[in-house]
Design a binder for these strands. Structure first.
Lengths: 210, 210
DNA sequence: TCGCTTCCTGACCATATGGTCAAGGTTGAG
DNA sequence: CTCAACCTTGACCATATGGTCAGGAAGCGA
């Protein structure tokens, strides 16, 4: 900290405050939705005066866009596990693992993402049509290859992907429901592990890869 | 219509307008979220002056609550299929069918429900803690019975239920994403059928019930 | 120290929104 | 026909909110 300040307080301040704001914004957007979130609330949560937010992020939309882009990066990154794997068991197993971990570590971001898509993707429609479409197409082909090679049953690759997304994301988006059904307590380490295992085993067996 | 009016225009008007408003509200809440929805927008969509909404529904909260309750009823009703079935194949198959149909027929309601839960269930928390908790507990026991009877593999019943909810609801909540990945077109009849089949076969095989 | 850039913030503004109200219209039982 | 209950709605209000701005503080290279 002291060192950073000595070297360059300029950049450090900006970085620190932007991160602080983005983190607060993520939480507020997740809990209140875009329409329900207020700059004042975000400012309070970030511990900064409201006018200061507007110094770093001109408008609410801009701030929101940054938050969404941030989670999309993480989201896409989880896909890396998919690529360098010999077959469906390793690839899909690792993917489930990665996405479950995202649900656990970034519940707010996940909710913001879900909210964004549910509302018709007003700010990331172009990503859906470019990056995501490509990604999906590529993975679908890969899955089809595995099917052709007899490594798994004949399943529509698209619907398998949807299922992976749905199931893993559910633990973030509907975390409150799950928590309520869990006696009002968040899932423990053990329970998270069980969740992962359940998802993994049902899906891998379900596609005939085990 | 004419008959209804002749019999009792009083009750008919109320019923007609409330239904009109609820339908418009469902759509607007789904597309904009609670915070983003405005009474004016709902009024316009219902074809009524804003002041008229407040005649039937005192506050935005009250209107919202009605919308959420409405979808919760439908949601619970889909569970009927679960009860009078001899084993997991029939029960879960029928449940998937029913829930997929809800996602297709009531995409707005599904989104409102998802949004409500994602935001911490501010208005239906009590339902979650009573009705839903009971329902879930009952089904979990039933599933456990099937496991004990050797009708399916040993899977944590809770996580199986979560998976069913997640997967089926995904087709409503993330319908926009799916549509985008489908070339910008809504799923056709055939594609919906394929979706159902995919979900059904993966899950039923996944739990070792086939 | 000087001067330039970056950062900070209280006060302020225009607008949008949930909600109210009073006056007037419609319906149907007696 | 009458009257009370029900329905309709334009105008209005208080408030909350996104965004602005001017003036000042802090950092930093020279």
């Amino acid at each position: 900290m002291a060192e950073v300040e000595r070297i360059s307080k300029r950049g450090a301040i900006r970085q620190e405050n932007e991160a602080r704001i983005l983190s607060a914004a993520e939480k507020v957007f997740a809990e209140a939705g875009f329409g329900g979130a207020t700059m004042q609330l975000i400012a309070d949560m970030a511990g900064l005066p409201k006018a200061n937010l507007h110094y770093y992020f001109a408008t609410k939309e801009e701030l929101y866009r940054k938050v969404v882009q941030q989670i999309f990066e993480i989201w896409l990154h989880a896909a890396d596990s998919f690529d360098d794997a010999p077959g469906p068991v390793e690839a899909i197993g690792a993917y489930i693992d990665a996405k479950m971990e995202i649900s656990r570590r970034h519940p707010f971001g996940s909710k913001v993402w879900a909210s964004e898509v549910m509302h018709g993707a007003p700010v990331i429609q172009d990503y859906l049509e470019t990056t995501l479409r490509e990604w999906t197409g590529g993975r679908a082909k890969l899955i089809q290859k595995w099917i052709d090679e007899g490594k798994m049953a004949s399943i529509d690759p698209r619907h398998l992907l949807y299922m992976l997304w749905a199931t893993t994301q559910h633990y973030a988006d509907f975390g409150h429901q799950i928590e309520t059904l869990n006696g009002g307590k968040p899932l423990s380490d053990r329970q998270w592990k069980e969740a992962k295992e359940s998802v993994r085993s049902i899906i891998l067996r379900g596609i005939g890869a085990l």
